[in-house]
Write a protein that binds this DNA or RNA. Structure first.
Lengths: 186, 186
DNA sequence: TGCATTTATTAACAAATGTGAACGGAATGC
DNA sequence: GCATTCCGTTCACATTTGTTAATAAATGCA
């Protein structure tokens, strides 16, 4: 169940079996039904989670409309770093778009982990940078590409996701209205 | 000359005078004349630098036009993390908009620093996250606000910069054409 | 199965921003 | 100091995307 996770961690640095057991021992299984929230605006994020199975989105609400910033699926880490790292109230939401199975770790357990085996800081740092670069790429696409180019790019790079996510969310993710996306698809 | 830098570092964690001397010893003074590059597209970034005095921009080139992603001024760190961390060729450029005085550290010296005093990893991680959050905010503004709102926000939050940066660069930073910015200013 | 709700599509019109071109003034370099 | 280049502004017109509204299709639920 956690082979993917272990594989990913091992790619960043060499960890002993003992390190890995320690890490796994600090994780707890968790579930989200479709539509359930992992984090709501105003809350302080106290967990990060590795998705075993399912799909979630990090999004904000503008004028009553949900604007996805990121879709996070199986074998990826979900969380909102800004709230988690600074222990400040979140200005984002995270909810499940499908029934989702998680392994989550609390902020306290993460601190404990770093204390016992500081090498895990490299893993967190890797994640932070990866997340940064990914976000920056999407932001860049939003400002440099036309709506049509953004849509094609999204479809080509996320063919699997494009069939799991409703179009009005894809539209919002791409920074356009659902009507405009419909127009583009013709 | 480096009091600001020391103050910033001390805010993140407590460092002994010895730690600080070690750190300062790994920095080297450097200068950029207005228009000179700190990093060019295609190069691998091997340095990060703290700006003592001056102004720089991180930018990309699209269809021959310079598009600033970030303006970095005195008492801030300048560099391009994606190229620096992954030692990959840069897809961005960094150049000075004013004559600029720097204290720079090489990737090798940074590694050395982390090895001798791992607590400095917290400083790097702090910078990475700060940079992430700042970038995300700008990206969000670009997609959620109108051109007029973006301009007003920029002017109000960066009044000093707005007089040090030519308008065509501010326009590009805000994702609009210089002509459109002119129109807005009326 | 059938009703209610949500999501997707279409069209006419409006608004914001881009495009290309022209001009004047400022800064720059010789 | 003069010529040149660069920068900011203005205008008319084109293009893209938003807005509003109506309807169709799909989905969820009783």
């Amino acid at each position: 169940m956690s082979e993917h996770l272990i594989k990913q961690v091992q790619l960043i640095d060499n960890f002993t079996d003992q390190d890995i057991s320690l890490f796994l021992g600090l994780l707890e299984g968790s579930y989200l039904l479709k539509g359930e929230h992992f984090l709501k605006e105003g809350q302080i994020s106290r967990h990060f989670a590795f998705i075993i199975e399912g799909l979630t989105m990090l999004y904000q609400i503008q004028d009553g409309v949900e604007i996805p910033c990121e879709f996070i699926k199986e074998n990826e880490w979900v969380g909102y770093l800004k709230s988690f790292s600074t222990a400040s109230p979140s200005d984002m939401n995270i909810k499940a778009l499908e029934d989702t199975k998680l392994l989550r770790i609390s902020a306290e357990n993460l601190t404990k982990l770093f204390h016992i085996q500081p090498k895990f800081m490299l893993v967190k740092n890797y994640y932070t940078e990866y997340s940064f670069f990914t976000n920056a790429q999407h932001a860049n696409d939003l400002s440099m590409l036309s709506a049509k180019q953004r849509y094609y790019k999204f479809i080509h790079e996320n063919y699997d996701l494009s069939n799991r996510i409703p179009q009005y969310l894809i539209a919002a993710y791409l920074g356009i209205k659902p009507q405009s996306l419909s127009r583009l698809r013709k």
